[in-house]
Amino acid sequence: MNALRLALLACLLASPAGATRLYVTNEKSNDITVIDSDTLAVTQTVKAGRRPRGVGVSPDGKLLYVCASDEDGVQVFDTTSMKLLRTLSSGPDPEQFVMNAAGDLLYIANEDNAQVTVLDVKKNQVVANVPVGVEPEGMTLSPDGSVLVNTSETTNMAHFIDAKTFARIDNVLVDKRPRYALFTPDGSKLWVSSEVGGTVSVIDAKTRQILKKLRFDVPGLTREEVQPVGMRVTADGKTVFVALGPANRVAVVDAETFEIRKYILVGQRVWHMALTPDEKYLFTANGNSNDVTVIDVAALKAIKSIPVGQAPLGVAASPN
């Protein structure tokens, strides 16, 4: 199992073929919309805790984890019955998390107490609380599982943490309000999106030096309207998708040359995204237009809008 795929909001889990299910968290209607990737239709809407945000599926596809931010917990659903099994006690205001490859540990960013909580999901026990910067937000794990990265909104840093000892390895200063972090599949680079800074920093994972700072000059838009948030990378590591928030677009970036190949108009206020395991489709959660846009990855075209709940924010794809 490729740990990288777990690293992306713990969403994108490998093992191709079969109909994929997409799980969308709706922040304001407090529910989860389930979408079938074959029919591109909503199959179910399930009640969740208050303010559901970060979402991810276990490596075996059996469990769905959802941060109920206003209930200070992570809810666990059975993906077959979509019944709530239990609520794990995270720290206050959990927003995003990442899961290890074995699927037994969750690393949760708790926005309110400047800590990352490491949770054993089987025992529902906190293994460690790691102090990080103010308002921790993005969470990711290196593909080999050795390095944990957290971004903090107010400190404007990406914190590199040893995933075994939880000792701080390094801090890298990035642009304002870093929201999301992503390792390339080979683990060599870390991409960090800065929402207010309007940039994406590409960091060398070994030297922790910033290799490249990407700007997104969408013709006709002010810089203020471009706010990079969620990101996704293809399994071959060649393409990165960057959601640009109120620019209502997804940037398609060549991960080798850093050239921006295209801006795809999606729904309004695009937050997070998920690729189906076969990488046929990219789904984007659009917070203001209350829908999910389906992008045909080969054609790089938006092909459908699927209405979901109120204020969709997170989206995760099942691995099978």
């Binding site: 969408v218 002010t222 309207e225 108009l265």
Partner: peptide, 12 residues
């Protein structure tokens, strides 16, 4: 508080 809605933000 944001300025007028840009044409490019909603139109392709």
């Amino acid at each position: 508080k944001t300025g007028a809605i840009s044409r490019a933000a909603i139109w392709a």
